[in-house]
Design a protein around this nucleic acid. Structure first.
Lengths: 246, 246
DNA sequence: ATGGCTCCTTGACCCAGATCAACAAGAGGC
DNA sequence: GCCTCTTGTTGATCTGGGTCAAGGAGCCAT
């Protein structure tokens, strides 16, 4: 009986390598990464790291989806990061986590124990440079997200979220959309609400409204078909096309 | 007649060096930075970079305050970054700016032309590593900000903003508060509204409310005295003390 | 097939904060 | 001093999205 073969993915020929930490590593550097890496699986709903925990490792999402969230004492919750395959988790140079990291689907991570990774980073400028690039991208994304949270209407927020997921999906698979585009929403209504700073009822109402108005259509309640991307972007209120689709 | 002496500040003995890009550079690296640096002054209200512009330089704020903002076609505006002295501006590895950068007070920047800086960065792992650290800090701050925008009430937002400015102020001067703490709000009510995702009227009302309730008091309408920091933090709804004051 | 989940939708009502509008308080400039 | 311009305050009213509440739709497990 074979083990789940996802645990045998190699960084070097991983299909998402073009977006990963090791995107520009040479074979020598890859070898050293291989030596310190290991895989961990998490079940849907499982918390990977609690805010305030000691961080034992850093790593990349190989498959599945994780979220970064912050919760106030009274239970108000805000998602502050959505981690899709190739995204980096953890913070070299800091001992404890500032946010909760949760697997929202079954998840496989490619992990590196923190100390060896930091040593390798110190010895391999490539990696720090690539990590800087990725962190700057994340910061840009966080800033777009801030505009969404602070100024967009509920309808614009939903349209934006669908556009963001469609874009990430396309970027990951290096493909451009062929006509009507189908996207799986990897989040529950409640998770979308936490992403958007809304309640789940408002999310549900606005998705219904976009459907009623012909901007999207639904198969089941997770799979969305986007009839007209330009119309969706317009509904999202984005001034730029946000670098839509790579 | 002497020129404004702020233009003669040296990175090496700059009072804010402990927070700047060059925080951990040795004398040799500092010398190389000195060779490619130059100073630029901007007047209050002047736009430093427009979103979409080619970025000719990167640099650090020496004195004064700049903001990073995003504007939608219909004029809705969201601040996505508040740049105080020691903060880094610009994005090595990207040709065009994604946000508007504006001086909200008279401002002096220590600039490096982009290409030489990138070359130096490639040759000096130190700098990329320090920049990564700073970017990760900014990302953490952006994520706290997202909780504020998505989930906090107007009153909590105002309390948070005052706390954030007090904290940054203290960190910059490496001092801890002695009893009641006075802070200058370096922003107009409208700028605060853009920071917080509110209208300026709501900002004004909530500041009045905090004053009425004895959480803060005002001298003029820019200088705030915080009677009781713990009370303010409580009003801000922060679960952690947010690493208050370094 | 039935009960008990979790997830989603929809309706009725309410309220925090937006909007519209008037006015006060400085800060220069002359 | 007086005028003008910008910035800030406060009031009255409106509304988008929150809250509360009642079902519906899948999806197991028994």
């Amino acid at each position: 009986m074979l083990q789940d073969h996802s645990v045998h993915v190699q960084c070097g020929d991983c299909p998402i390598r073009h977006r990963a930490v090791c995107a520009r590593c040479d074979t020598d550097e890859l070898t050293r990464l291989e030596q310190i890496k290991y895989y961990r699986s998490f079940q849907a709903g499982q918390t990977i790291i609690w805010s305030g925990d000691r961080m034992e490792f850093v790593g990349s999402v190989v498959s599945g989806i994780a979220t970064l969230t912050q919760t106030m004492e009274d239970g108000r919750r805000q998602m502050v990061g959505l981690l899709l395959p190739s995204d980096f988790v953890g913070r070299p140079g800091r001992a404890t986590a500032a946010f909760d990291v949760t697997a929202t689907t079954d998840l496989v991570m490619c992990c590196f124990r923190k100390k060896p990774f930091e040593d390798l980073m110190a010895a391999t400028p490539h990696i720090a440079q690539r990590l800087l690039e990725m962190t700057l991208d994340e910061l840009d994304a966080a800033r777009e997200w801030m505009l969404l949270l602070g100024r967009k209407t509920a309808r614009e927020k939903i349209a934006s979220l669908i556009a963001i997921i469609a874009r990430r999906d396309a970027a990951l698979h290096l493909r451009r959309p062929a006509g009507a585009l189908a996207v799986d929403l990897p989040l529950t209504r409640e998770e979308m609400a936490d992403y958007l700073g809304l309640t789940l009822e408002t999310v549900s109402r606005q998705i219904s409204a976009l459907k009623r108005d012909g901007v999207i259509s639904l198969e089941g309640n997770r799979r969305v078909t986007i009839a007209d991307i330009d119309r969706l972007m317009e509904e999202a209120g984005d001034d730029s096309d946000g670098g839509m689709l790579v």
